[in-house]
Simulated scan of single mutants.
Amino acid sequence: MVTRSPLKVSYLFAGPRGGPLESVRRGENHGAGFWGLCHLNAFGIEANFLDPEQVYPQALSRFLRKILSTYWIHLSVFWKLFSSDIIFTSTAFGTQLIYTLLRTSHPRWIMHDFNITGFLGKRKTRKQKIFAFMVSRCAGIVTLSKKEEDMLKEDFPHLSKKIAWIPFGADLKFFSPTPVEEKRQILVVGTDPDRDYRTLFAACEDLDIPVVVTTISSRLTPLGPLPRFVSVRRFSPQELVQEYNCSAIIVIPLDTTRRLNDAMGCSGLFEAMAMGKAIIATRTFTMESYITDGENGLLVRERDADDLRTAIKKLLADDALRRRLAANARAYAEKNLDINVCTKRLAEFFRMIAPE
Results as ranks from 00 to 15, higher is better:
A317P: 08
G140C: 06
G121P: 07
Y197W: 04
S69E: 02
C246N: 15
L68D: 02
M287S: 08
D206A: 12
K122R: 14
D293R: 07
P57Q: 05
T310I: 11
T286H: 05
E149P: 12
K183M: 15
F174P: 09
K161A: 14
F82M: 06
I186S: 05
D150S: 14
D304K: 03
E205W: 08
L315T: 03
L60E: 14
D338M: 13
V180E: 09
R17K: 12
T89I: 10
G94I: 05
R233P: 03
D262A: 01
T284S: 03
K314L: 13
C246E: 15
N48T: 13
G276F: 00
L325K: 00
P193M: 03
K66Y: 06
D51L: 13
V135K: 01
S136A: 11
S247P: 07
R234P: 03
A92Y: 10
K146A: 07
F201S: 01
A317H: 07
L75D: 10
S247F: 05
S217K: 13
Q242V: 15
T70F: 09
P177R: 02
R259D: 10
L315Q: 05
R184F: 14
T343C: 11
R137D: 05
A281M: 05
G36D: 11
F88G: 01
L101K: 09
D206G: 07
R26G: 00
M151R: 11
N245D: 10
K335Y: 08
T256S: 03
L101Y: 08
G268Y: 02
S231T: 15
L254T: 03
A329Y: 05
S83E: 09
D155N: 12
A305S: 15
E154C: 06
K124G: 14
G44A: 10
F93V: 13
R195C: 01
S84N: 13
R301I: 04
H106I: 14
F63E: 05
M151V: 13
G297S: 06
V232D: 00
T89E: 09
Y332M: 10
G268H: 01
L60M: 13
D155I: 14
G190W: 12
L187I: 06
D307Q: 11
T70I: 12
V2N: 13
K173R: 14
G31A: 11
N245I: 00
R345H: 13
Y71R: 12
E22F: 06
R103S: 14
A333V: 02
T3I: 15
P210F: 11
K344L: 08
I98M: 02
I279Q: 00
K146C: 04
A305V: 09
I87W: 03
R198Q: 10
R309M: 12
K122E: 12
F174N: 08
R303I: 11
V300I: 10
G297E: 04
V24W: 00
S10I: 15
T191M: 09
I141M: 04
T215A: 09
T199M: 00
D307A: 12
P20Y: 00
A139D: 07
V232W: 09
L254D: 01
G15L: 15
R184K: 14
R26D: 08
E239C: 07
A278L: 06
E243L: 10
F270K: 04
F114Y: 09
L81C: 03
F119G: 09
K146Y: 13
G297V: 03
L37W: 04
F114S: 01
Y290P: 01
L260V: 11
T95C: 06
P167S: 00
Q185R: 13
M151P: 07
G121W: 01
R195M: 04
Q128K: 09
